[in-house]
C-alpha cells in the first residue's frame, strides 16, 4: 500500500547563522503540545502534570524544565501551557503520547507545526532584540526562565529566556520567512 512516503520540510530549511556576537539557529526537533487546564479541575490538572512530567506548574509568564533539559513547561496563560519536548521529530505522535498519559485531566493539542522556533544567542542578542521586541528584557525583569507572548514586526511571537544571553523565539510557521527576515535585519542593523 504505502508506496509513498512523506518528507518533512523544516520551515526555515534548518537555518543557522553565526554572526560572531549573535548566533541564530532554527530548532527542528522539538514537539510542542499545548495543555489546557479544565475549568474547575485545575488542581487535578496540576497534579497530573506533576505525575506525568515531574514538573511543578510555573507561574504565568514563567517556565520550568526537567533536569535533563528534555522537557520544558511554559505557562502562557492562566489555563494554558506549552509542553516542549526536545529531540522529538514527530510532534503529533509526541502529543498523542502525552494526551494518553493525561487522559481527561488535561486537554492537549499538538502545536509543533504551528510554530517556527529559533534560538538567538550571543552577547549582542539583546541589542538586536531591542529593535523588534517590545518587552523589557532587562535580566531583573525578564530573568532566566521568563517568557512573554508579544508581537515583533507585526508577528505574534513567544520569547523565552533560556539563559542570560540565549533566547528562544517562536512565531507562526506560515510566516517563518518574514519572521527570520525581521530577526536578521535586526542583527544586521546593530552589528
Amino acid at each position: 500500500m504505502a508506496k509513498f512516503s512523506l518528507q518533512p520540510t523544516p520551515f526555515l530549511g534548518g537555518f543557522q547563522k553565526d554572526y560572531g556576537t549573535v548566533i541564530i539557529k532554527e530548532i527542528t526537533d522539538r514537539a510542542i503540545t499545548s495543555l489546557a487546564l479544565p475549568l474547575g479541575f485545575e488542581a487535578k490538572a496540576e497534579k497530573a502534570i506533576k505525575t506525568v512530567l515531574k514538573l511543578n506548574l510555573p507561574e504565568v509568564g514563567m517556565s520550568t524544565q526537567s533536569k535533563d533539559g528534555t522537557t520544558a513547561l511554559l505557562r502562557l496563560g492562566k489555563d494554558q501551557l506549552f509542553c516542549l519536548k526536545n529531540g522529538e521529530n514527530d510532534g503529533y505522535t509526541a502529543h498523542k503520547a502525552l494526551a494518553d498519559k493525561f487522559g481527561d485531566n488535561i486537554y492537549t493539542t499538538d502545536q509543533s507545526d504551528v510554530w517556527v522556533s529559533l534560538t538567538l544567542s550571543g552577547p549582542d542578542s539583546l541589542r538586536a532584540l531591542e529593535r523588534v521586541c517590545p518587552i523589557d528584557l532587562h535580566p531583573d525583569r525578564f530573568g532566566v526562565g521568563a517568557l512573554a507572548r508579544t508581537a515583533m514586526e507585526h508577528l505574534g511571537t513567544i520569547i523565552h529566556r533560556n539563559s542570560v544571553a540565549e533566547y528562544t523565539l517562536m512565531s507562526a510557521s506560515s510566516s517563518a520567512g518574514s519572521f527570520l527576515h525581521a530577526i536578521k535585519t535586526s542583527i544586521d542593523n546593530v552589528l
Binding site: 479544565p38 475549568l39 494554558q80 486537554y107 499538538d110 502545536q111 509543533s112 504551528v114 507562526a172 506560515s174
Partner: peptide, 14 residues
C-alpha cells in the same frame, strides 16, 4: 464564563 471550553488555533499546524 462557566463553560469548560478551551480554544487554540491550529491554522498553521496542519
Amino acid at each position: 464564563p462557566n463553560l469548560d471550553v478551551h480554544l487554540i488555533s491550529t491554522t498553521d499546524g496542519w
